[in-house]
């Protein structure tokens, strides 16, 4: 449900990596606004800063300068523990390489982020079951990731991201490690979630999937060079 306040507001974000005496400007003056229910795609050539931008959006990394507000609250200077808490409650991650934990079952992988917050066992069970049902993986709840196909693993990763009922899903090349059939299935799942009201930010270099987004942000050399709002097909 859109509100007057944007969910995420980036203003003039800079990210500089220092390696010995070399300065690398990964992002320069990036400003971006994501509202509730938006589906934003970030695209651009390799090394343009897509993943850095997503890491900053996901509070995995801090900007060197600039303003980052989440639900109107500045988050760029939060300490490590507070950032963890925000990530846990507000952000759901979907990684290119799934990043499931091999020693945990599907059910336990989805439960994992919920164990880091004050939910009871019953509340966790309810949410995990609901998330697995949403991605169609209930039958595989007791399997280990190694027993699943790539597409199934990515569905579990989506379920893990959904379980926490986050404000936004951040997907970093979610189809990068999948064949086209499985990739399409995962993208269909994201579309479905967006249709149900989820806010999604997707990093991709595949124009087919960029078209799913309401807003596409093109990055080049760490700067936004173009933003367009394609029609939803």
């Amino acid at each position: 449900m859109p509100t007057t306040l944007p969910l995420i507001q980036l203003e003039n974000i800079e990210k500089v990596f220092l390696t010995d005496e070399v300065e690398t400007h990964a992002l320069s003056g990036v400003s971006l606004e994501i509202r509730h229910g938006d589906y934003v795609s970030i695209s651009g050539p390799s090394g343009c800063g897509k993943s850095t931008l997503l890491s900053i959006l996901g509070l995995l990394d801090s900007p060197t300068s600039g303003k980052y507000e989440l639900r109107g609250e500045p988050v760029e200077h939060l300490d490590y523990a507070a950032r963890s808490r925000v990530r846990n409650r507000e952000i759901g991650f979907i990684f290119q390489s799934f990043n499931l934990i091999g020693d945990l079952t599907v059910w336990e992988n989805v439960e994992l982020p919920l164990t880091y917050r004050g939910l009871t066992k019953e509340e966790r069970r309810e949410r995990v079951d609901e998330a697995l049902a949403k991605v169609g993986m209930t039958a595989r709840a007791k399997h280990y990731p190694a027993q699943l196909s790539g597409g199934q693993q990515q569905r579990v990763a989506v379920a893990r991201a959904l379980g926490g009922r986050p404000s936004i899903l951040l997907a970093d090349e979610p189809t990068g490690n999948l064949d086209s059939k499985n990739g399409d299935a995962v993208m269909a799942l994201l579309r479905e979630l967006h249709a149900e009201g989820a806010t999604i930010c997707l990093v991709t270099h595949d124009p087919r999937y960029s078209r799913d987004a309401q807003k596409t942000v093109h990055l080049f050399d760490g700067q936004i060079v173009d933003g367009e709002m394609p029609a939803i097909t």
Binding site: N88, N99, L112, Y116
Partner: peptide
């Protein structure tokens, strides 16, 4: 490392 990174990314605090 990767397992720990995932745990941290999805919201586990360092102390946890």
């Amino acid at each position: 490392r990767k397992e720990i990174a995932v745990r941290l990314a999805i919201g586990a605090g360092r102390l946890r």
